[in-house]
Amino acid sequence: RRELLKHHFFTRRIIFGHRDFDKWLEALGKGEKVIVLTGFMPSGTPHLGTAMVFEELKYFQSIGAYVKIVIADAEAYAVRREDRDLTIRFGLEFIKHALAWGLNPEKAEFYFQTAMSEAYYRLIQMFSRKITMAEMEAIYGDLSPAKVVSALTQVADILHPELEEFGGFKHVLVPVGVDQDPHLRLARDVADRFEGELGLTRPSSTYHKLLRGLDGNKMSKSRPDFAIFLDESEEAIRKKIAMALTGGRATAEEQRKLGGEPWKCMVFELYTYFLLNDKELNELREECVKGRILCGECKRIAIEKLVERIREHRKRYMEINENLAIDRIVKKPSF
């Protein structure tokens, strides 16, 4: 199993926790049917925080897992009250960006929540029988009809691959941020309650650190000044990185004397997630903490590396956008 965990997301503790991941890995090693399921909210353009999940999915494909990705258009429309046409359009863009980042379409499946078959919606209705309002309120706080339906739909997203109609994957892994753990706990409880009736088993999960925005808070589409988007212009990348929060000292003299604090630095976080191998990262950390590199130079290096990474991604995206028959990849909602 350790051989399967050599990706730098594991060795650098970006993926830092799990529920039953060991059981999922054991099933993978035995050649049993395993699947990785995750979802995206189609409410804007993907950013580097999204790409971090794309990178996870690529890794799971590389070790033999099939990947299924839900476009959460029902939740976007009902709970977040996003425009319906824009939601579908953004969903298609997410799929193109995922493929451009390197996901193998032969080992992946994409779907919209509102364009599934009958059995998926039957699960939502059946699950409602064995979940109490007290449970829902404990997880989601104040409830509305839209939130209730959305929560039940999320559980169906997580558990439906176990049905024979959807492949009979009895070992489901869901990679999420730790803030999503309540949804996983609910899905595991529901699986227990339907073990006898539907043969469901508890899903596994891994937990990753969320990539922070350039100001040190969560990277989010709703805070565009502090996020790097996958369609970002090179000029915008340069300006945003130049303004990013660092772990530098108040003056250059002080930094040369005391060294920097890379654990506080958003630029070093980009290096950690995307831009450097282990040897390069360790060398840069050493240079920083000993005051041998200043923030300006460090930012210039990061800018060039990130600009090149986004340039390559944009090139692949344009090729996919021009050549991909998207209807062969995903069924679009009819309205």
Rank of each mutant, 00 (worst) to 15 (best):
T87L: 03
F112C: 03
R122K: 07
E286K: 05
E75A: 08
A151G: 12
I69L: 03
R292F: 06
N104K: 13
T272N: 12
Y59A: 00
F127D: 00
M266A: 07
S43C: 03
Y121P: 01
M136L: 15
C265E: 09
G260D: 10
E197K: 00
A325G: 09
T246M: 09
S150C: 02
M219H: 03
K147L: 14
V330I: 11
F94S: 00
E254K: 11
R309F: 15
E82D: 08
C295A: 12
P46E: 13
P224M: 11
E162F: 01
D142P: 11
E106G: 00
A227I: 04
I320E: 03
K147V: 12
R185P: 07
D278Y: 07
F226E: 13
P224Q: 10
L294G: 02
I71A: 02
G259D: 09
R316I: 05
N217Y: 12
D192I: 15
T246G: 07
E312R: 15
I303Q: 09
V174G: 03
T132E: 14
V36H: 01
L230P: 08
F40I: 00
E234W: 10
A119V: 12
F94K: 00
A98R: 15
V34K: 00
K305A: 01
P262W: 07
I88E: 15
M219G: 08
A72S: 11
A250D: 15
L57C: 02
F194N: 02
Y207F: 15
P262T: 06
